[in-house]
Amino acid sequence: MNSVGNVILIEDDQQIRRFVKSALEGEGWKVFEAESGERGLIEARSRKPDLLVVDLGLPDMDGVEVVTEFRKWTTIPVLILSARIEEQEKILALDAGADDYLTKPFGVGELLARVRAVTRRRLQNTMASPKMCFADVEVDFIRRSVTRNGVAIHLTPIEYRLLSVLLSNIGKIMSHRRLMHEVWGPNNTESAHYLRIYMSHLRQKLEHDPAQPAHLLTETGIGYRFEL
């Protein structure tokens, strides 16, 4: 089978490493294992990886540190493995540059779906398209217009900005802070509840069932994510 790329797997538990490795190998990845952050960073420098999978709870260093260190020299996708209660850690890791996370325990299907999502996003980002469609909505980035079933939808400037930030990061979790920063600018004085209100407006205007959104998703405790 042709290799789709190199992946560095940094995880201290041998059993988890074993099944993640076999799942990824089944997809054609070449997997390099590391059981400590130190070792993982050395592997990452020598193996020219296309994906990094990091456990947040490592014995020698914090997973967030690994991500920060890694992000100093490369932009390849980073997927985090973490336990449910570590919300703050996840936000730190995402803000440090991680692309997505998986909550333990997870199945093979979930793992592969996330891996596909983060690697696909990388391809999409390289070819920016002037138009984008999801469900019955079409967004034209050149004319800055949004239509739903061919009918023009009026978005306020902030709503449009929020939508375009989410659309340019398809599938990626955007922390509250990051979204606030990108929509309201670096000196924003607004609080996160503004973000929630505008997100709610977007759902009202674009989602089929705003209470059970299919695209504009909430990542509780962390932020929001747009999913195709």
């Binding site: 538990d13 059993q15 988890i16 074993r18 099944f19 993640v20 076999s22 799942a23 709870g57 336990a83 209660i85 570590e86 333990k104 325990p105 997870f106 199945g107 093979v108 299907g109 793992l111």
Partner: peptide, 24 residues
């Protein structure tokens, strides 16, 4: 609590993952 959570969840993660891989 967090070390308890980590120590108990880690083997379960392995178990879920491996059983899932086996099922596939």
């Amino acid at each position: 609590l967090s070390s308890l959570s980590h120590d108990l969840r880690t083997p379960l993660t392995g178990l879920v993952g491996m059983a899932d891989a086996l099922a596939l």
